[in-house]
Each structure stands twice: as structure tokens, then as C-alpha cells.
Amino acid sequence: MAEFEREMPSYRLAETHAGDTLQRVAAREMGDANRWPELVWINNLTSPYLTDIPAEASTTVLLTGSMIRIPAPTGINTDATERAQVYERDCKMVKRRLTDDGNGDFAVVAGTDNLTQQLKHRIVTPRGQLVRHADYGCLVWLLQGKVAGPTANLLGAQYVKAAVQADYRVSSVISSTAEVDGDATRITATAEAIAGGKVDISNQ
């Protein structure tokens, strides 16, 4: 498909900050620093992309403090193909291991199944562990080794809720609850996805 035939994706606007790079903007606004090339394309930018120096700013180099377009799915889609595009696809993971599709290739997961998988990964990743994604992850690990009880349950439920809500594909968190299960605490959450449908997540 020719470049001029590509459909322009929907977007929202976000303010850039002094000292920003596209990687910082992508990490802050999109949850993934590695998605910075999308910002180049949707904003029609050329190197150095962002600058703090007014004399370097142009129609293809943004001055920090100005607004930048951020790709953002909008609207409510009911078509399965559209949902798969909104929620993206990834390699299927079982117990943190890649799986085979039976034909010698990696198995993939898409749509709400992928969203569910990625939300679970976010919850089990200690927040702050990934250098390039400082805000990625969940603080529920802080409760490891703590005495189970009402306070720990409330904190755990709130930590999971915050982690799930941080994903741009989540419209709202309907519920997040925790209960003691033997010597562990089981936390379950239900989220409403931006393109419709509910996602259930359980963590123990």
C-alpha cells in the first residue's frame, strides 16, 4: 500500500516537557518507550524530533512544551477483527514461557486474550524493575512477607487496580478485590476495555 493510501490513525494530544525525548514521551503516554517510531510517523517528524531550542524548531521538529499527537484507539468497536487490532497481538506465554503453535512457530494471542495476558504480566512485574519503563508494573510485590489481613487486602486490591488502570486499552476498572486463600492472598479484578468487553484478571 502506498504511503498516501494509509489511513491516518486516531490520536489524542499530549503536552511535551522540557528535556523530553520521544522515548520518554512514548513511555509516559503510551506505556512503552519502544513505541517512539509511531510518534515520528503520526507527527511527521524528522531528527532531532524534539528540541528545547526555539531556533531549531520547525514544522517537523517540535519545540518542547508544545502538543504532540499520541496514537489512541477511539470509539466502541464490536467487530472481532477491529478488537484484535485495538488490543494488538503478541507471543502466547504459558507460565512465562513461549509456546509452540504445533507447526514449529511461536503461538500468538490477540484481541482481549492478549490484553488479559499483558495485564497479568504487568501485575506480576515489580514496578520500577524495568529501566526504560519506570512506571510499568505493580506495587503488589511490596506485600510479600507481610501479615495477611484486611489492611494488606485493601492495599493489594488498590495496587492491582492502579496497575490495570494504567494500561491505555483499559477504560475503567469495575472491581478489584482481595481475599486470604490459605497462606496467600488472591486478588481478582474486572476491567472494562476501551473497545468493549470485560477482562477478568486473577493474581495470587
Rank of each mutant, 00 (worst) to 15 (best):
P48V: 08
A84W: 00
G102K: 09
Q85S: 10
Q23E: 15
D32K: 11
G19Y: 05
A166L: 01
A80M: 04
G149C: 10
V86W: 01
V94A: 10
S10Q: 12
F106S: 09
D52F: 08
I123Y: 13
I123W: 11
V180G: 01
M67L: 15
D100Q: 00
T177M: 05
V140L: 09
F106D: 10
L39G: 01
E15G: 00
P37F: 12
K95W: 04
L45A: 05
T116S: 10
G75K: 05
T16R: 02
L98E: 04
W41T: 14
L22D: 08
Q118S: 04
T112D: 04
E192C: 02
G65F: 07
T116V: 07
R6C: 04
A57R: 04
S176Y: 02
L154S: 15
I187Y: 05
A14Q: 09
E7H: 06
P150T: 12
E38D: 14
A157S: 12
A2I: 09
W41P: 01
K92M: 09
R96E: 11
Q117D: 04
V170Q: 03
A26M: 07
G102L: 07
E7F: 00
T125W: 12
S47R: 11
D200Q: 12
R96T: 09
A184M: 13
Q117C: 06
E7G: 11
C91W: 12
D32S: 08
P48F: 12
N34E: 14
R97Q: 12
A2W: 08
A195G: 08
Y11P: 14
T112N: 02
E3C: 02
R35I: 07
V25R: 05
P150C: 01
L155P: 13
A157L: 05
V164G: 03
F4T: 12
T188H: 03
I76D: 00
A14Y: 02
N203L: 01
I194L: 09
D200E: 11
D167F: 01
E179Q: 13
L155R: 15
D101C: 03
V180T: 15
T78N: 03
E3L: 11
D135N: 11
P37Q: 08
A163G: 03
G31H: 04
D183R: 10
T59E: 15
G75P: 06
G75I: 01
L45K: 01
Y168G: 14
K146M: 12
A148R: 13
T190D: 05
T185A: 09
G102V: 05
T51H: 04
N34D: 13
L143Q: 13
S47A: 14
D135A: 14
E88A: 08
T21C: 07
V86D: 00
Y11D: 00
S172Y: 13
